[in-house]
Design a protein around this nucleic acid. Structure first.
Lengths: 212, 212, 212, 212
DNA sequence: AATGAATGAGACTTCATTCAT
DNA sequence: CATGAATGAAGTCTCATTCAT
């Protein structure tokens, strides 16, 4: 079992379930992202996963349970990718840029992830059951932004006293960036490029001083 | 009622109706904003309006119809307020600032409007029926942003060739700003202030040049 | 009812609902009695009441709620009829007889009531939801039997010290009598007659004394 | 396995199966008794038997089949115990007493059996499938009571002409006794004692004759 | 001898919608 | 102008049953 080459590798035989569960999570992410928690029906998900609606209950206790599983998976996926990108940068401006690019990458490479993220934000507001189950919105860019601020203060890129302003600005930009996936998956390159230039202070010029 | 003579008796027919219709639109905005199109029930709206669910059909042909009425009203309200604020400014940077402040004002003064706006964006994606009915997403900041770009080009504040970058950046920022209302109605002042400073290029400092 | 002849009596016009609700309770009693709480479906009840399953929810919040309404009505009907019969008798033996006859009367005249009573006893055991909702099994012959014992002690028909025995015996007999309706509605006359004779001590004769 | 020589190796095939089957019947009796036929799920039974729901189908063709097996076993168990107790008594009154005590014994020693018996009576009424399969309610005290009447007539303890009354009374009492197990397993001793005294005619006294 | 995965029918319940009044 | 009663479709969830392994 360990050596025989050309053999099915280590996975427990007969574990067809694992594959199915993963397939469900995958399609559920897309469907929840598209229609939101409420309007999505179990049948929507089941159909796309190639099973019956009842079979979902073999894997999850309820629709809510399924949603939460997708949520957790998606969140950790985003978090880890963001952290990965951020970790290689040592300046504030470099790290901001890295995060923006990571967000863009996710939007482009895995629109399902980005869309679900945006949709889930709304659903958390709309459905008390979800809010209750998630409690502390883990991540949501909060921790990430906090780290960023700390770094910027250390490198001097953020003036003392401006921390809150910078944090608020970063949050809005990240939010807008991730929400923008819902509109169009185009022009994202341009967007991030423009944001980088803006942050560097060379996107715009001062208005012509009248009288000079 | 106050005895003013010469007042027409029998009061304007359809007057009560108009009032009721407006009350419905008002509460519908709030309820749709909170729960979204799908999860909102006619009864939710009717209860808060002090009528029965059946009575809604005297004013609207369907739930969708009611939603669209709210949408149109809300959209025109936002548009007109934005235009009003923008019209007094003649420089690009002044007008951007005015728009950001207008967005913030709406968020604070009329959270129902802002929330509905954000919610409707999602619902348009989620419900084909809504998308179909709205067709041309009227405005959505598109026309506004286009005007802005034209102005910036004219004043020289936008370098030739950067128009697309600037437009993309502005859209993301506006989007993020309006979406942020869903999270917290706090810190909005700070956010807009920070954004203005960022646009002026004096929110951040360059990283300390190692070796200088 | 008292004067204006030929006129629709006092009932509030347009109260078609009251009639429907009563029809539902009536048929629900029969269906619950026949199939029990669990196996009875809302459609069973609705069909027999001439409405759709969904319409039940206009009258009751849930299946359980409907069951409880039937239960309360049935219980109070039984209680009041029993009390009525018992109230005219002043001796223990007379009152026992009256109760037995009342039980028989119910069994014969309104088998639905008797059957439901028996069925509900089981359902209370089987379904925690029901048990929870009923808490104090109101009546169940308990109060009635207690009153009876008190009377018998007062008249001297029950020997001091035998109260518990008599109470237990009466409970078993009442229970058996009401449960017997499930088997056959026949021979009930005979049953009650026999029970009366037994209580009087002249149903059976002592065994022939061997050696006398 | 213990090396006892001469023991047949390879142990009797189907031995494990027999044990499992018996375990299933045992737990099924309890579960059916508690919840009734309809509400009991195969999983309820399987879980308590330590197997999966699917495995039940190795032993029984269907849920109904399993129920019937439990029914038959339980019925024969009750019948044989009753007959055993009755066979040692030669007078009517002695045999009645023996039967009552046997019923009480079952209630106390094996509440599962008694409860199932009572539950099955209801289920037979409720589920046509069960009624159809059992057809002739074998026993149910009918044969037993008939024998008893014959004996009483022979010993003279039952007056000619009273046979039907006595039979009806006995059936109600036995029914009440077995049904009472559902309520409380307490006070059963008292109940049987009281019934014996009642049958002997010395539980109650005549009402004080007014005027004597 | 038993499991694990899946099905399909049917349950309870909700809700947009209709219509007589 | 509005209610009150009802419908019917659809949604979530449960469960007996099957079958490859």
């Amino acid at each position: 079992m360990t050596s025989t080459p050309g053999q099915r590798k280590g996975r427990p035989t007969a574990s067809r379930a694992r594959a199915t569960r993963e397939r469900i999570l995958e399609v559920a992410r897309v469907v929840f992202a598209e229609h939101g928690y409420g309007p999505t029906t179990n049948k929507d998900v089941a159909d796309r996963a190639g099973i019956t609606a009842g079979a979902l209950y073999y894997y999850f206790d309820s629709k809510l349970d399924m949603f939460l599983a997708v949520f957790a998976e998606t969140q950790s996926l985003i978090d880890s990718r963001m952290k990965e990108r951020a970790s290689t940068e040592t300046t504030f401006s470099g790290r901001v840029r890295a995060l923006l690019r990571a967000a863009q990458e996710i939007n482009v490479a895995d629109p399902g992830v980005a869309l679900f993220h945006a949709a889930a934000r709304m659903d958390r507001i709309r459905h008390p059951e979800i809010r209750r189950a998630i409690a502390h919105p883990p991540g949501e860019g909060t921790a990430i932004v906090d780290d960023l601020i700390a770094l910027g203060s250390a490198t001097g890129e953020i003036e003392p006293g401006s921390e809150d302003d910078v944090a608020a600005v970063l949050r809005v930009i990240l939010l807008g960036l991730m929400a923008s996936v819902a509109d169009d998956h185009l022009g994202q390159r341009t967007t991030v490029e423009g944001l980088c230039r803006l942050l560097d202070g060379n996107l715009l010029r001062p208005p012509a001083q009248p009288g000079t």
